[in-house]
Design a protein around this nucleic acid. Structure first.
Length: 477
RNA sequence: CGGGGUGUGGCGAAGUUUGGUAUCGCGCAUGGUUCGGGACCAUGAGGCCGCGGGUUCAAGUCCCGCCACUCCGACCA
């Protein structure tokens, strides 16, 4: 019997974290596999999470003056090749369109892996004067990269994202934009997704192809591995020169504008799952949960229960809470397990006893004793509980980050400390050869050079030369 | 791209050694009894056994070839 029940359960995360992750993705009904490797179906519940993320971020972008646009999905090969570093990075994972109908195309078209080149082609046409700057464009779309291995949300061949592309008259302004958008991402992840982040700069080895600087927000998953939450790139005027984009300045001279791009993707959903999830399944931050509160009537056949539950639902909805009700004839226990699996932040139980007492019972997904909430002013009380859940999730994730971050003074320390998950802070000379050695000898990659620097040593433990900065090392998804 | 593993109703598996009517659990449908943490009874629907060849009176099972998925590496701006 117990063995049969297991069909409905998910793998214990301590036994096999990878399998646990896949179980959550499918059993919480976020995603389904399609017939093409690496191309996934976002089911309603999973897509709703993305829609909530989109809505909040889109609002933030627009507050800062960004405008949404939509560019073609195909890039002519000649266009892609205009910037040398860029094409070198992406060529190995491009998919190509070579036929139109039954005719072979004169030139093959790449399905966009990212849209820098398309934006540049367009910017060349619309930027002429300093009065045309800055251009602050953003695009919501999917991109395609032919990855060899794939995992739900973390590595798709086709994935959903937003890509912001901006052009500025001065280097200072473009650099400021790069930082500004990195902070938008960092704040979003911490305040909305309840995921603490480390803000920093990528090493030259890890930065975006064609960029002068890449900035990143790095997150720690429950198993101590790293996930890059979002990136923001400063391009200087490299692309502008390659694409011959110029504008006439106030000085009546021709100049090249300075460029940025920045993006986050549905990979963040993978981050949410692996940051907050537990052995009962998904745990969703209230701010992006498709269902924030679910009403579960108890003993529905008893008189007045169903009506009272539906009234409670209406009260919550009218107060702006994303609430649903479960009127199915599944048992109490089944429903409890089901909504825990789906990560619903708060479950509200309402039975004859509660109705008599004018209360309902709230169970937080983050655990703890069940709460008794008076039905009078219940919406306010539920909102308060949702805030508690949001805060508790952030605090728990922050503890995990702190507990698995350590200072290291040798390659061995990093290797041993990161083997089972963790971030190592270690001084670095800045030489790429040492970075390569870290991968070979400790199995880690540099996650970032954090903005918050600490001087924890004088020399690079790899080569013994004087150290320039502290780097975070870890094993990444 | 290298090494391992797996392909049987929607899901998880047994059956393959030794060829002989396609099995089990979950889920699903209908009706009923239940109902405060994964309920129960009854009835029922659902299967090109990954694909293609071959051997045989007979192939899920044996032989050959292919494909897909998955794990571990490599790779992954």
């Amino acid at each position: 019997m117990a063995k049969d029940k297991k069909v409905e359960q998910i793998t214990d995360m301590d036994v096999d974290f990878t399998q646990w992750y896949t179980d959550v993705c499918t059993k919480a009904e976020l995603i389904d596999y399609s017939s093409i490797k690496g191309m996934f179906i976002y089911r309603p519940y999973g897509y709703a999470i993305w829609e909530n993320i989109q809505h909040i971020l889109d609002t933030e972008f627009k507050k800062l003056g960004h405008e949404n646009v939509y560019l073609p999905m195909l890039i002519p090969e000649s266009l892609l090749q205009k910037e040398k570093d860029h094409v070198e990075g992406f060529a190995p994972e491009c998919a190509w369109v070579t036929y139109g109908g039954s005719d072979k195309l004169e030139e093959r078209y790449c399905i966009r892996p990212t849209s820098e080149t398309l934006f540049c082609e367009h910017y060349k046409n619309v930027i002429h004067s300093w009065r045309d700057l800055p251009k602050l464009y953003n695009q919501w779309c999917s991109v395609l990269r032919w990855e060899k291995t794939s995992r739900p949300f973390l590595r798709h061949r086709e994935f959903l994202w937003q890509e912001g592309h901006t052009m500025h008259a001065t280097e200072d302004e473009a650099r400021a934009e790069t930082q500004r958008m990195l902070n938008v991402y960092a704040d979003f992840m911490e305040n909305v997704l309840a995921m603490p982040v480390i803000r920093g700069r990528k090493t030259d080895k890890e930065k975006f192809n064609g960029a002068e600087e890449t900035y990143t927000v790095e997150c720690m998953m429950h198993d101590g591995k790293a996930l890059q939450g979002g990136t923001s790139h400063y391009f200087g005027d490299g692309f502008a020169r390659a694409f011959d984009i110029t504008f006439t300045g106030k000085d009546n001279q021709l100049h090249h504008p300075f460029q940025t791009s920045w993006g986050v993707s549905t990979r963040m959903i993978g981050g949410i799952i692996m940051t907050h999830g537990d052995n009962s399944g998904l745990v969703l931050p209230p701010k992006i949960a498709p269902i924030q509160a679910v009403v579960v009537p108890v003993a529905m056949h008893k008189e007045g229960v169903r009506e009272a539950a539906e009234k409670l639902l209406e009260t919550l909805k009218n107060a702006g809470i994303r609430a649903e009700i479960d009127l199915s004839d599944q048992s109490m226990g089944w429903k409890a397990a089901q909504y825990e699996m789906k990560g619903v932040p708060v479950r509200l139980e309402l039975g004859p006893r509660d109705i008599e007492n004018g209360v309902c019972v709230a169970a937080k997904r983050t655990g703890g004793e069940k709460l008794t909430l008076p039905l009078e002013n219940v919406a306010e009380a539920v909102k308060s509980v949702l805030e508690d859940v949001q805060r508790e999730m952030y605090e728990k994730a922050l503890r995990n980050l702190h507990d698995h971050t350590f200072d290291a003074h040798s390659v061995e320390e990093v290797r041993d400390g990161c083997a089972n998950g963790g971030f190592a802070r270690m001084m670095w000379c800045g030489d790429e050869a040492c970075e390569v050695k870290m991968k070979e000898q400790a199995g880690v990659t540099s996650r970032c050079i954090p903005f918050d620097q600490e001087h924890i040593g004088d020399t690079c433990p790899v080569c013994g030369k004087p150290a320039k900065q502290m780097v975070i090392w870890g094993i990444a998804y």
